[in-house]
Each structure stands twice: as C-alpha cells, then as structure tokens.
Design a binder for these strands. Structure first.
Length: 279
DNA sequence: GACCAGGTGCCAG
DNA sequence: CTGGCACATGGT
C-alpha cells in the first residue's frame, strides 16, 4: 500500500471522519492515517489531523467539490432549531458535510439500503464493486459497477452479493438506466418535485430512497429522507401521530431550506448515541 | 431466538 | 387515503 504525496487544504467547519461515518457513502477504505475514496474512476487519498485537512496532491479541487467544502455551514448552523436535541446534534456533529456523490452510485447503493443497517449496506457495496466493478489503477477498491455492467447479470448473481429481495430492484434499476429510459443527468435539470417523481419511477425507489438521492446526489439540501430513525425523532418533536409524509412536511416547515442538512445531523447523532428527543 | 435495520410494492377496505 | 403483509439477511 503506497500512500500518495499530499498537502494541506485549508478548511473551516469540516470533520472528515464524521462525514465519512454518517451513512452517505459506503466505500471509504482506511489507508495509513486516513482514507481512500473513489470518485467515479478517480482515487483520492484524504486524512485529517486536528484541524489540518490533508489531500492527495493535485486533487484539491476534486476534494473540495466531493466534500462540498463550499456549503455555507455557518448559515446552516444559524438556521438550526433551538430545541435541546437539535442543538446537541449540532454540537456532536459539527463539521459534518453533505457530500456530492456520483448519481448512479448513490441511487444504486440506496436501492440496496431498505431494512439494512449502515454496516451491511457497506458490505453489499464493497462486494458489488469487487465482483462487477472496473479495477482502477492505484485504488484499493474497484469502481461502482456501471448500469451496463449490472444490466447484463442474472438476478441470482446479485442475490449472491447478499442483496436479498433488493436484487430484483437493483437489476431492474440498472436496466432502465442502461437502456436510457431513465436519464439521471437530465433529472438534475428538473425542479425537485418533478425530479422526485422521476426517481420514484425507478424500480425499488420510493419516497425515502428518492429523498436520499436528491439530498446526496442532486444537491437538494431541503430533501428529508424519513427512515425509522428520523421518523422516531420527528414524532417525538411533533408530539402527535402522522405518516412519514406528514413528518417530512413538518420537518421542512420547521427546518427550512437546509432541512436535509439538519436531518443528517439528527440522524447521525441519534444513530451513534442511540438517544431520542425527550418531550 | 426474538427483535431490528437509512422501505417498497401491492392489495384490501 | 390508510393499514397490513411479504420480502432476505446479518448483527445484537
């Protein structure tokens, strides 16, 4: 294992380990004192020592974009709700950033996410890369398999990657993307409501997964995926019953333009501490 | 050996 | 619109 030369990239309000552990991307590999990540077919070595963000030489711009170092965290923090739990999440997760992911990788991995723990989504993702992704020079891991690479597989091959009942969805999704009936780039031009509708037309994608993809791959920072964790949190904050859609609307009213950011902090804090808001 | 995990699709009322 | 159920797998 060869750690490439790196240099410091000035940052403020950035916590690399928390960002990588927060259930956005699932492939980062520990390497030396840092991690290697793969952005499409470009490997990137990153590390953090104290407040020093170390980035592989010549890839500063790539890292800035991938980790969204341009997001205005001070503005986002100013918009955080003032209740105790939200403030505790903010303190605990300060520096966590909502990254900009490649679209198909994000869509594919979240199609494999229903009823799975974060650690297992990672295992599935790594197995798919190992078996069906293209090798990349200088990278510990392969690229995420292209839609075309998956589209030609038998469903049983995907089931063999521990996908369970999600294999059928992922295969169908790969096929509609590969044959062009869904255009992931064109979706980026749509307003959020229409983009969500287009994503929900992909097999295996419901409102929750669509919102994850909108937030993590389409920069819709107000998109709020309501999973079991966020559902419990929002129920406790709202203090009355409601559907996931009700809770999503509630969070957008309460959290505003950066509701997806707030949601990500609440999610990571609740999941890592196993605590919920107290009434 | 229950119980739960970043849900979705389908069907009945 | 809402509620109920099947769907696979691994960790606690």
């Amino acid at each position: 294992m060869v750690i490439p030369p790196f240099s410091e990239l000035p940052t403020s309000e950035f916590d690399l380990p928390k960002t990588l552990a927060s259930g956005q991307i699932f492939h980062a590999m520990p390497m030396g004192a840092g991690w290697q990540v793969l952005i499409d077919r470009t490997p990137l070595y990153v590390a953090q020592e104290g407040s020093r963000f170390l980035v592989e030489e010549g890839k500063a711009q790539l890292a800035e974009n991938y980790f969204a170092l341009d997001h205005p965290l001070p503005d986002i923090y100013a918009a955080f709700p003032s209740d105790a739990f939200s403030q505790a999440a903010l303190m605990a997760c300060r520096g966590l950033r909502v990254m900009r992911q490649p679209r198909w990788e994000c869509l594919g991995t979240f199609i494999t996410s229903p009823m799975k723990q974060v650690a297992h989504i990672r295992q599935i993702s790594l197995t798919l890369r190992e078996r069906y992704g293209a090798p990349v020079d200088g990278s510990l891991i392969n690229a995420y398999p292209t839609p075309a690479a998956m589209a030609g597989l038998e469903e049983s091959k995907l089931r063999d990657c521990q996908l369970g009942f999600r294999a059928k969805s992922l295969l169908k999704a790969a096929r509609v993307v590969a044959d062009g009936s869904i255009d992931l780039e064109a979706i980026a031009q749509l307003p959020t409501e229409e983009a969500r509708k287009a994503l929900c037309a992909v097999p295996g994608v419901g409102r929750k997964v669509a919102n994850c993809v909108l937030l993590f791959a389409y920069e819709r920072l107000d998109a709020v995926p309501v999973d079991v964790w966020i559902g419990r949190i929002l129920l406790a904050m709202r203090r009355r019953k409601g559907s996931n859609l009700d809770l999503e609307k509630f969070s957008k009213r309460r959290f505003g333009l950066y509701a997806g950011y707030v949601q990500q902090y609440l999610f990571h804090h609740a999941r890592t501490t196993k605590t919920l808001p107290t009434p």
